[in-house]
Nucleic acid binder design. Structure first.
Ligand SMILES: [Mn+2]
Ligand SMILES: [Mn+2]
Ligand SMILES: [Zn+2]
Ligand SMILES: [Zn+2]
Lengths: 140, 140
DNA sequence: TATTAAATCTGTAATGATTACAAATATGAA
DNA sequence: TTCATATTTGTAATCATTACAGATTTAATA
């Protein structure tokens, strides 16, 4: 999958988001790092390439992007929010040993069918995840 | 469901947890408040009845209890941990308007069947939740 | 009962992620 | 250029949680 800056620029413009340099950088980072990174991880790499980058800008940008539905916030560790450029509803696996978060492909009826309510509550998002020990940590 | 102190005392002793007064209070609170409360909520009520109660003790107790599998930590808001005395795997609904967390009864294959792995990762816990607008907030 | 070591509880300080805020900078129209 | 607006930046504040050390309780032993 090729995701150059021009692609990302179009993506933002179509969603009504002004494609500033900082926003393009964050988007590019997310496209290239599909490991559900933290703000810290994003900032640490971007500030190397763009020394003026502020951590507050990373926070602001991610809040904007998630509000517009361009990125997803993943809150399964309880200690920090992690970010996902993949906005299609999918499930995750959190390793209790190494802390990595993986995408997993499980077929849950609620993810595939478009349910609109449960127990009278209006559903807008569906989240599912597993916790345990990841493949890598099992074999080492 | 009647859950008096004697019941709770037995429950803790069976799990090898010394049933101190503070621990019994936390357990009793959780049994009587099935709304997935925060540490703050638990502490605020307990300190009224037990003026010497420390918030640190609430934290310590909940960490002990969740480590022993007596209570469940729910990390779906991203801002604070919420606690559940119901340790059977079940799903939740978080209302984006009022912040309440409800239990929901959905039949997901992964909750009922006992899968041990997914994509090579060893599964220890299964979590699922929805976000949206709750029944109460819809009709008001 | 008195002694005493271990466990538990408590209050305060520290940590770490996130947000608030105001000044600096960039953008873009007139 | 001028000026208003949007964006970015750095710092301070907030808030949940954890670390830690002293106080208290527990329970075993003499
Ligand atoms: Mn993902
Ligand atoms: Mn529950
Ligand atoms: Zn792992
Ligand atoms: Zn609600």
């Amino acid at each position: 999958m090729i995701t150059n800056m021009k692609h990302i620029k179009n993506e933002l413009e179509q969603k009504g988001i002004k494609p500033t340099y900082q926003r393009l950088c964050v988007m590019e980072y997310l496209h290239e790092h599909l490991v559900h990174p933290t703000v810290e991880m994003i900032y640490d790499e971007l500030v190397d390439r763009v020394p003026t980058m502020s951590k507050t800008t990373v926070y602001n940008t991610l809040k904007l992007l998630s509000g517009k539905g361009v990125v997803n916030e993943i809150t399964i560790t309880g200690t920090e929010v992690r970010y996902d450029i993949n906005c299609q509803s999918h499930h995750h696996f959190l390793c209790k040993k190494c802390g990595k978060i993986y995408d997993v492909d499980v077929t849950c009826p609620f993810v595939n069918m478009d349910h609109k309510e449960v127990s009278g509550h209006e559903i807008q998002e569906i989240h599912g995840y597993f916790k345990g020990v990841c493949k890598g940590c099992l074999t080492s």
